[in-house]
Amino acid sequence: MNDSANMSPKEEVVDSSSVHRAPKRTDFLFRVFYVGCILLILVEVDMQVTNLLFTESRHEYHALEKLPGFYSWFSFGGILLLVVIAKIMRKYLMRSEDYYDG
């Protein structure tokens, strides 16, 4: 009993502090992530064109891979398409949770 009585206020403290901290920390993580995206484009440009740091060219086995930034836009566009199609599927396939119980 004592334990659980002690636990809840402690939890609340941890909780509220993490709520206060969360936006800043998330913003920072997002910035790191955006920088990561830009760096990955720069690495590809360097590999393919400037060869300042990376002298090795990208191996290309498939015709699509020869397109500049293929993996970046294919993935970005692919996931947009995936979600759009999935949202359309919802219109036709979504039913209430007790659909099969009736």
Binding site: E44, M47, F74, I79
Partner: peptide, 15 residues
């Protein structure tokens, strides 16, 4: 590099 591009830009699409 290509795998990281695939993953980062996939996450970017969701974000």
């Amino acid at each position: 590099v290509t795998q990281l591009q695939l993953l980062f830009f996939g996450v970017l699409a969701v974000v």
